[in-house]
């Protein structure tokens, strides 16, 4: 069974919001749209977006890490949002695991969004229905698109290549491999929702340099008879 998902590489996400507006762009004009914007040119503008970037600071100066967390529906394998829906408008597709809302059935009771721990469902105030990330399902199977573009809009947009799309049930897929190899994790896994979307953690590259490496045997200073080269002598001798 297929379970499509996004894997988001926090190691390279720079919090640029490309995924946010390109998601909006694709979806407002697509099957999932239109997505309303309220007070678009006035006070407190706000609207329906399927994907948002949160930022956090971890630690204290100077050991601060700045974290960006792109967050959209995680297409949980055990999605609490689905069974609570009284109309069946919220459903999870058996074929590919995508969790969707059928706008024609949704009565806008918002109950599904209560059940979702992640705050990723957004009620569209204009259409009065619940909306959320569709994994751009209207791109995935569109054979009129070139194969390489049959991916979510946010994935194609992401300048850092931080968003990877694929089937996490296929152990050979890139997403599965990266989850496995790079320690992919889920958000609040203890809640039992089994999110399909995973995140890849930050990793640090360090270059330990030891003192002996610093002064090379073939030091140009000796050749150059630099006025300060004397200061190096002891180390050079040590290194033979």
């Amino acid at each position: 069974m297929t379970q499509f998902a996004l894997v988001i590489d926090l190691n390279v996400c720079v919090g640029c919001h490309a995924c946010v507006t390109n998601c909006k762009q694709w979806n407002t004009g697509g099957e999932a749209g239109p997505l309303a914007d309220l007070n678009p040119y006035g006070k407190d503008p706000n609207g329906t977006f399927f994907n948002r970037i949160l930022s956090y600071e971890v630690g204290t100066f100077p050991n601060t890490e700045t974290w960006y967390l792109p967050k959209s529906c995680l297409h949980c394998e055990d999605p609490p949002c689905v069974p609570v829906c009284p109309t069946g408008a919220s459903y999870k597709r058996k074929s590919d695991g995508i969790v969707l809302v059928d706008y024609d059935k949704c009565i806008g009771c918002k109950y599904c969004s209560w059940a979702c721990p992640y705050g990723v469902r957004e009620f569209d105030e204009e259409r009065k229905v619940m909306t959320k990330c569709t994994l751009c399902v209207d791109r995935l199977y569109d054979t009129s698109l070139p194969e390489s573009r049959r991916k979510p809009a946010c994935v194609l947009a992401c300048p850092a290549g931080a968003r990877i799309f694929g089937d996490i049930h296929d152990p050979d897929s890139e997403v599965s491999r990266r989850i496995r190899e790079e320690g992919g994790f889920q958000l609040m896994p203890e809640l039992g929702t089994r999110p399909a979307n995973h995140y890849l953690p930050r990793s640090k590259t360090v270059l330990p340099i030891d003192e002996a490496q610093v002064v090379r045997a073939e030091n140009p200073l000796r050749h150059d008879e630099a006025p300060h080269a004397t200061g190096l002598q002891p180390i050079e001798e040590e290194m033979g």
């Binding site: 640029c16 490309a18 194609l156 947009a157």
Partner: peptide, 20 residues
């Protein structure tokens, strides 16, 4: 819809928040 041009040497298909 505006998308990045995959064949472009500069962005190779990606597009930013503004571009989108």
């Amino acid at each position: 819809y505006i998308e990045g041009n995959p064949d472009h040497p500069l962005n190779a298909g990606v597009i930013c928040a503004k571009g989108g």
